[in-house]
């Protein structure tokens, strides 16, 4: 029965691919059903990830030899509290909105704001004109940084040129490479060479 998952994967993939390229009532119906199944599976995977996270941290608390079990304890307590509030008051509700706006958002924003300090420190230490290549990188970084400041139009135009010409060329190369890799991976899945579902 090892052929069954492969056959299902190839069949579903071919039908979905055909639905992408051709407009047909039967293909649309089947394709829509497949996509809805996928949405259900994705939601289930999200729930599974939540249980896995809770399980891991519960084990960290249960095992007394794990380092820093206090963080896991905080996570379990917070998850339990938010889940309980959500079940009790419903979603969305005023308590849940307050938790989201006054706890979740500020913490996330603060963590992301720290990146600015780390980037500044890293830029100060790493951006050195050791060679011609690093000199080019340093010059481009300085031009983009100065061009972001809405003071001089010349610097802004230089920044736009760097982002539109050399930077965009590199980005397009990356996107083309990713597209080719995705295409190759899709073909391998469709012909059954790659079978991640059976591993």
């Amino acid at each position: 029965m090892k052929w069954l998952p492969t056959a299902v994967a190839i069949g579903v993939g071919l039908v979905t691919l055909a639905d992408f390229f051709y407009r047909h009532p039967l293909l649309d119906t089947i394709g829509t059903a497949f996509r809805e199944w996928t949405i259900l599976l994705t939601a289930f995977a999200l729930l599974l990830g939540l249980f896995n996270l809770l399980h891991v941290h519960f084990l960290r608390v249960a095992r007394r030899n794990e380092p820093n079990p206090g963080y896991s304890l905080v996570l379990l307590a917070t998850a339990l509290a938010v889940t309980g509030i959500g079940f009790w008051f419903g979603l969305p509700s005023e308590p849940m909105t307050w938790i989201f706006s006054n706890l979740y958002l500020p913490l996330q924003g603060a963590f992301f704001a720290l990146v600015a300090f780390f980037l500044a420190s890293a830029a100060y230490r790493a951006l050195r004109a050791n060679s011609f290549a690093t000199f080019l990188m340093l010059a481009a970084a300085l031009i983009v940084l100065i061009g972001q400041i809405p003071l001089t139009s010349i610097a802004t135009q230089a920044k736009d040129w760097i982002l539109s010409v050399p930077s965009e060329a590199g980005v397009r190369g990356l996107l083309l490479g990713v597209a080719l890799g995705t295409l190759a991976t899709g073909v391998r899945l469709l012909v059954g060479i790659d079978r991640p579902y059976s591993e």
């Binding site: 500044a120 100060y124 230490r125 951006l127 050195r128 300085l142 940084l145 100065i146 400041i149």
Partner: peptide, 19 residues
Amino acid sequence: VNAQSAAQIVLVLAIVIGN
């Protein structure tokens, strides 16, 4: 934007002084 511009000026100066 004013705050962001001031921070960027500081960063540019730091990079130049460091070099």
